[in-house]
Design a protein around this nucleic acid. Structure first.
Lengths: 293, 293
DNA sequence: CCAAGAGTGTTCATAAATGCACAGGTAATT
DNA sequence: AATTACCTGTGCATTTATGAACACTCTTGG
C-alpha cells in the first residue's frame, strides 16, 4: 500500500527546505494555516514527527530530512517531466503513427519517408491492415481512409486526394484483341473483376451493366492481383490512374468518369489534430498528394 | 518553477496504470467524477492530452506513458520513504544526540558507550558545551542538566542522579598541614575557590561564611582546574564525591551536607520522548547512574 | 528594558473539492 | 437482435479544505 496525499509531502518538502511555515506558505501561495494542517495531517498519517516546532520556525527532524531528500528528487523529476510534456506539443518529436489500407502504401510510403528525412527526431510508424484502425483508442495519430467521408464524432476529416479509376489493358492484350470501340464492342472482350457479383464500386456497377458475367474470366478479392492480371494480358480491368501512370505497358481503354472517383481522406482524432507534430505531417502529405495526379 | 498539484499526477498515474477512470477511482478510494476532474485539470495545466478517451476507458498517449513512468518511480520512492519513517519510531536506529556540560563527560561517556555497544545500529553523538543546548530547535534528543529542575514548557524532565559535593584535600597536603578540626580551624588552611566572590553554589556560600577571602589562594573559573589544584596539594577544595572516589590520594575533610547536593536531570523534548529510541537511552542512563553513587 | 518584527496556532466564515444520482454510450454475450 | 455489464460524463447537494483575522510567544535591535 502506497501513500496517499502527495500534496502533503510536497508541503512538508517546502517547509523542510524553507525552515518556516510562513516561508513555505509564501512559496506555495497558500495560507500558513493550510501548511500547518498539512504537516499535522501528514505526521499523524505517518505516526512520526517530521519537525521540531519552535517560535523561530520548523526544524526538520531526522525523518524530516529524509523526506526532504526524497521529495527534492521527486520535485526535480516532475519539473523535468513537465518540461518534456509542455514542450512535446510544440515540437515534432516522438512517435508518429500513420495507418491506411495496404493498397495505398505505394502512394504514402514515399511521402512519409521524405517527411521523416525532414524531421530526424520523429519516429514514423506506418501500419497497414484490412481492418480499420481506431483513432479513439489511440491506435494511430493519422489514418488514411477511402470512400465516403467518414463521420466519426471526435474525428477531424480532411480531403487528401481524388483517386481516379479507369479501365486498362496491357499493350500486348490490345495488340491481340484490338481496342474496344463503343459499349457494344466491350461484350467481346475479357474482363478482370471482383469475386463478389454485386460490388458497390461505381465502376464495377458500370461494368455489370455492359458486360455479361461470363466475360469476367478472372475474379479476385485482391486489388493487387487485379493489377498483375491486367499486366499479364488476361483482359480489361480497373486500376487507379496513379498506379497505371507508372507503367508504359498499360493502355487506357475508356475515358474515366467522375462518378468513379473515390476520395482519400486524412483522418485525425480531435485531441491530436491540434498538435504541431500532426499538423506538420498533414501538411506534408497534402503537398505530396499534388504530385499524385 | 515546479509543478503544483502532485495529487493530480498521482491520480493520472493510477488512470494510466489501470486504463480506466472507474478502476483508478476504486484504487484511489474516490468517486470517479473526481478522477475525471483531476485529469481534466492536469491536462489543462500542462496543455497536453495525457489520455485518449473512449467508451472502454482511458488510453494513455505518449505523454501519458511518460508520466506513468515518472510517477511509478515516485510512487516507489514514497513507499520506501513511508516504510522507513513509520519503522523509525519503533526501532533504535539512526542518530541519537546527547548534550551536557563538559563536566559530566566522565560520568556520561562510559554509559553512552555501553549503550552504543548494545545498539550497533544507532549513531550516538555526544556534544558538550558551556551554553545550554536547546531541545526545541532539535539540537539534541536528550540533554543532561544540573541544578534546579528546568521547567521548559515542552520538555520532559526526569531525575537522573544526585551529585554530592564534599571538601577534599590531597593526602600530601593533610600530612603537611594536618586535618582541620572544627570551623575555627578552617581559617588556618588554604583554599581553592571560584574566581567570582559571590558564587551561588551552596557549598561556596558555606565556605564564604567560614573562610576569609584571603585564604582562597587559588581561584579559577574552570572546574577541571579545581580538581588538579587539589591533587597538587594547593589546599582544600570542593569536588563531587563521584570524582573523588576514583582517586585514593584524596582525603575528605568535612562531612558532606545535603544542601550541597545538586541534582542531575534528564531532559527530552515531548515529541521525541515517546520514541522507543529515546526511551531506550533514558532507561540505560538511569540504570548506569545507580553505579555512580 | 522596551518596542517592533516575525513566526506559530486557533476560531469562524467562505470557497473549493468531493460524492451522489442519473443520463448516455459502447462492447460483449446469449 | 436484444440484453447485460461496464464505462464516461454532468448538474446539484454536501462535505471538506482553505483563507482571514486575531491572540500569543519569542527574538532582536535600539
Amino acid at each position: 500500500m502506497s501513500i496517499e496525499a502527495w500534496d502533503e509531502i510536497r508541503t512538508a518538502f517546502h517547509v523542510a527546505r524553507q525552515g518556516t511555515v510562513s516561508g513555505a506558505a509564501a512559496e506555495l501561495g497558500v495560507h500558513h494555516a493550510t501548511v500547518i494542517r498539512h504537516i499535522d495531517a501528514l505526521e499523524a498519517r505517518l505516526g512520526t514527527k517530521l519537525f521540531q516546532r519552535h517560535a523561530r520556525g520548523y526544524t526538520p527532524t531526522e525523518a524530516g530530512r529524509d523526506l526532504l531528500q526524497v521529495a527534492q528528487t521527486t520535485d526535480d523529476q516532475f519539473t523535468q517531466l513537465v518540461g518534456r510534456l509542455k514542450g512535446r506539443g510544440d515540437t515534432v518529436t516522438g512517435e508518429l503513427l500513420i495507418t491506411s489500407l495496404a493498397v495505398f502504401s505505394p502512394l504514402l510510403v514515399p511521402a512519409i519517408a521524405s517527411f521523416q528525412a525532414n524531421h530526424p527526431e520523429v519516429v514514423t510508424r506506418f501500419l497497414t491492415a484490412e481492418r480499420l484502425f481506431r483513432l479513439e483508442y489511440g491506435e494511430a495519430h493519422i489514418a488514411v481512409r477511402a470512400g465516403q467521408p467518414p463521420e466519426q464524432l471526435d474525428n477531424v476529416v480532411q480531403h487528401l486526394f481524388t483517386n481516379r479509376t479507369a479501365l486498362f489493358a496491357s499493350r500486348e492484350y490490345i495488340e491481340a484483341h484490338g481496342m474496344p470501340e463503343g459499349d457494344a464492342d466491350l461484350k467481346k472482350h475479357m474482363f478482370i473483376g471482383p469475386d463478389e457479383e454485386d460490388s458497390r464500386a461505381p465502376f464495377y456497377k458500370w461494368m455489370k451493366e455492359r458486360v455479361p458475367r461470363s466475360q469476367v474470366v478472372f475474379r479476385t478479392t485482391d486489388a493487387g492481383a487485379v493489377k498483375h492480371a491486367i499486366l499479364e494480358g488476361v483482359g480489361l480491368g480497373f486500376m487507379p490512374l496513379w498506379e497505371a501512370k507508372e507503367n508504359p505497358d498499360l493502355v487506357q481503354v475508356v475515358e474515366t468518369r467522375t462518378d468513379w472517383d473515390s476520395p482519400l481522406w486524412l483522418v485525425t482524432h480531435v485531441d491530436l489534430h491540434r498538435t504541431v507534430k500532426v499538423q506538420a505531417l498533414l501538411k506534408h502529405l497534402k503537398k505530396s498528394a499534388q504530385d499524385w495526379g
